[in-house]
Design a protein around this nucleic acid. Structure first.
Length: 560
RNA sequence: GUUCUAAUAGCUCAGUUGGAUAGAGCGUUAGCCUCCGAAGCUAAAGGUCAGGAGUUCGAAUCUCCUUUAGAACACCA
C-alpha cells in the first residue's frame, strides 16, 4: 500500500533526524489540487521537540526530495508535507496490482468466523426490515471471505420462541388441520395473534404454555412446528435466492436446544444462575458500568427458555462444531443491549471467542416513521421487488426489451446499491422513489460504466499486461490514482464492517472511469503504445468493478 | 424517569486516529451526441455543519450545557 510505503520512508528520515514519532500516518490528500498524499504529523513533532513546524517540515522534505517515487515533495504553511507521486511510482503500483493475486492486497491472519445474519422468523414473510440484514450481512460475509478468512454463515431462524406458540394456538382456534395449512394462513394468523396477546393476558398465557410444551417435546405441537417450519422456510429460501443471498447453515433457535443443558451445567458449576421472582437469571452488571445492564433472563418462571438462552446454546453449538475465533451478529441496532448481556455471560463463562454485534439502523418511511404501506402493514419484500421492477420498466422504453434474467439483476443492483451506500449504523429513510432511481449514484450507474468499457475491451486486443511509465493526461492520472486506493478502501471497509465504504469507493472509481472515457477515445488511436496502455488500464478497472460488485452481491447483466 | 444514539445544501446522504477552500446524488439553471453505449459528461446556483461555551497552532469531528428527534431499559425476539 502506497501510504505504508511513504510512512516507512518518513520514519527512516525522522530517525536520521533524531526525532522519532509514534504512529506516523500518511493519508490520501483532501486537497487534490495540491498533492496526492499528505502528512500532517509535523505539528505533533513541533510540540514534541519544541521547534517551529515549518522548520522541521523543511528538514524532512530536504531528505525526501530526491526520492524517485515523488515528482514533488513540499512543505506548505502552516506545516503540511505534500507528496505528489511520480509517474513511475504510480505505474509500479499498478503493475504490482496487475501481476499479483487479488490486486496485490496484503491479507490479514486467517480466522474462522461465524456470521449470523438474516434472522427471519418462521411464520412471517420477509419484509423490508429483513432487507438490510440480508444485504449488509451478505456483503460483510463476502468481504471477509475475500480477505482469506474461513467464513461460516448462518441464517439463524427465529423458530422456537413465543411466536410459534401463538401461531399454533391460532391454527387450532380456526380448526385448520395439519395438511391444510397454507402460507397465507401463517401470514394472516401471526399478526392477528401477536396483537391479541398484547390485548388479552389470558391468551398470552396460553400461547406461552404452548411454547413451553413445544420446547419440552410435546408431540402434537412438534408436528405442527415441523409443518409450519417446512412451509415457511421454503418461502424464505425463495426470497433469499432472488437476492442471491446464501447461507452455509440453516440453523435456528430450535437447533440450539440440545446445547442448553451444557450451558446450564457450566453456569451452575460457576454458581452464576440465580433465582429472581421465579425466573432464573444471570447477573452481568459490573461496577465500572456507567449505565445499568439488566441481568440476562435465562429461564422464565414457567420454565420456558428465551432469546438469550437460545443464543447461548447456539454459541455453544458453534463452538463445538467449528471452533470459531470470532462470531458476528448483523441485526437491528435496538438489540444492542441484549447482545451486550449475552456476550458478558460468555465472558463470565470464560469463552475464548471474540464477539461483535454489528447493529444497523431502523428502516423508516418517507415520513421518518417506521415503514408502513398505506394499508398500515409492513410491505413484503416480494412486493417491493415487483414495484421496483415495474418502475424500472416504465422508466424507459429500452427497458421493455430486456430479458427476464437481466431485469432481475438490475432490480437487485438498484435495491442493493441504494441500501449499501448508506452507513450501516444509521437509521434510514426507505423511499421507493429513491430506490427505483437509475441515474446518478446508483447500481445502474456502476453497471453502465462497466458495460460501456467492456464493449471497448471486447472490440480491441491488447498484447501485454504491463504498463509502461507514461501517464498521458489528467483524467488518466486521476483514474490511476483512484485504482491505487483500492487496498486502503477495501481494508477500511472490512475492518469497520461497513460495506458502505466499499460501495462509495466503487462509485468514485466509476466517476473517474467515466471522466476518462469522455476525454480519451481509444478506437482510431494511431499511437499504438498509448492504446495498449489504456486498454490495460481499462481492463484493470473493469476487473476491479466486477470483483467489488461481487463482494456487494451485485451481478452484471449481459445488456442494459 | 435513567441511559444511549443522532441533528451537515430544498430533499436523501458522505465526511478514516482533530488538519489546508465541508463533498456527492436528486431537484433547479446553462452547455455537450457527424466521434468507443447521453442510464453519460462539463459547469453554475445552493451551507451560521441544531444553538451556545470550552480545549487546541487548528474543531463538522473532542468536552460541557441547551434545544429537537429516535431508541433501549427483567421473564417478546
Amino acid at each position: 500500500m502506497i501510504t505504508n510505503k511513504i510512512e516507512k520512508e518518513i520514519e527512516i528520515v525522522l530517525n536520521e533526524l533524531e526525532m522519532p514519532l509514534e504512529g506516523v500516518a500518511v493519508t490520501i490528500s483532501n486537497r487534490k489540487d495540491l498533492c496526492d498524499y499528505q502528512f500532517d504529523g509535523v505539528f505533533k513533532l513541533a510540540k514534541l521537540y519544541h521547534k517551529n513546524p515549518m522548520e522541521i517540515g523543511s528538514q524532512i522534505v530536504e531528505k525526501l526530495k530526491n526520492n524517485q517515487d515523488y515528482q514533488k515533495v513540499e512543505i506548505l504553511p502552516p506545516g503540511f508535507i505534500n507528496f505528489t507521486l511520480s509517474d513511475s511510482c504510480i505505474n509500479n503500483e499498478l503493475n504490482n496490482m496487475l501481476q499479483n493475486e487479488k490486486y496485490n492486497i496484503k491479507m490479514p491472519a486467517k480466522e474462522t468466523i461465524v456470521i449470523d445474519y438474516g434472522g427471519p422468523n418462521i411464520a412471517k414473510p420477509l419484509h423490508v426490515g429483513h432487507l438490510r440484514s440480508a444485504i449488509v450481512g451478505e456483503a460483510i460475509k463476502r468481504m471477509l471471505k475475500y480477505m482469506g478468512h474461513n467464513v461460516i454463515s448462518d441464517v439463524h431462524l427465529g423458530d422456537y420462541g413465543l411466536q410459534i406458540g401463538q401461531v399454533i394456538y391460532g391454527l387450532q382456534q380456526e380448526n385448520i388441520s395439519l395438511q391444510d395449512i397454507t402460507l397465507e394462513d401463517l401470514e394472516r394468523i401471526y399478526p392477528q395473534m401477536s396483537k391479541l396477546c398484547k390485548e388479552d393476558e389470558n391468551v398470552k398465557t396460553i400461547c406461552a404454555t404452548i411454547t413451553k410444551d413445544l420446547q419440552d417435546g410435546n408431540e402434537e405441537y412438534q408436528t405442527y412446528f415441523k409443518v409450519i417450519k417446512e412451509l415457511s422456510q421454503s418461502d424464505i429460501k425463495r426470497i433469499y435466492d432472488y437476492l442471491d443471498v446464501s447461507f452455509d447453515l440453516w440453523n435456528g433457535e430450535s437447533d440450539a436446544y440440545p446445547y442448553i443443558t451444557k450451558v446450564t451445567e457450566e453456569l451452575e458449576a460457576k454458581h452464576l444462575l440465580k433465582d429472581s421472582e421465579g425466573a432464573k437469571i444471570v447477573e452481568v452488571s459490573k461496577d465500572s458500568d456507567s449505565k445499568e445492564i439488566p441481568p440476562l433472563i435465562y429461564q422464565k418462571s414457567n420454565g420456558a427458555y428465551l432469546y438469550g438462552t437460545t443464543d447461548l446454546g447456539t454459541i455453544k453449538q458453534r463452538s463445538i462444531d467449528y471452533q470459531p475465533d470470532r462470531i458476528l451478529y448483523v441485526t437491528d441496532r435496538r438489540q444492542a443491549l441484549h447482545f451486550e448481556s449475552v456476550f458478558r455471560v460468555c465472558n463470565l463463562l470464560g469463552y475464548k471467542e471474540k464477539f461483535e454485534h454489528l447493529g444497523f439502523g431502523t428502516v423508516n418511511g418517507p415520513d421518518g416513521k417506521p415503514f408502513k404501506t398505506r394499508a398500515g402493514n409492513t410491505p413484503k419484500l416480494e412486493e417491493l421487488f415487483e414495484e421496483t421492477k415495474q418502475t424500472f420498466l416504465n422508466s424507459s422504453e429500452k427497458n421493455q426489451g430486456m430479458n427476464e434474467s437481466d431485469l432481475d439483476i438490475l432490480v437487485n443492483a438498484i435495491i442493493k446499491f441504494a441500501d449499501l451506500q448508506n452507513n450501516r449504523e444509521k437509521d434510514y429513510i426507505f423511499d421507493i422513489k429513491k430506490f427505483s432511481q437509475t441515474t446518478g449514484k446508483t447500481g445502474p450507474y456502476i453497471l453502465y460504466t462497466y458495460l460501456r468499457v467492456n464493449k471497448i475491451l471486447t472490440q480491441e486486443n491488447k498484447q501485454s499486461e504491463t504498463l509502461n511509465k507514461i501517464i498521458y493526461n489528467k483524467e488518466d492520472r486521476d483514474l490511476r490514482l483512484k485504482i491505487i486506493e483500492l487496498e486502503s478502501a477495501l481494508k477500511y471497509a472490512v475492518d469497520t464492517r461497513l460495506p458502505s465504504l466499499l460501495a462509495n469507493y466503487l462509485y468514485e472509481l466509476c466517476v473517474n472511469i467515466n471522466a476518462f472515457y469522455e476525454k480519451n477515445h481509444i478506437n482510431n488511436l494511431d499511437d499504438v503504445n498509448k492504446k495498449e496502455n489504456w486498454l490495460i488500464l481499462l481492463a484493470l478497472s473493469n476487473n476491479i468493478i466486477k470483483d467489488m460488485l461481487d463482494l456487494l452481491s451485485i451481478k452484471i447483466p449481459e445488456r442494459m
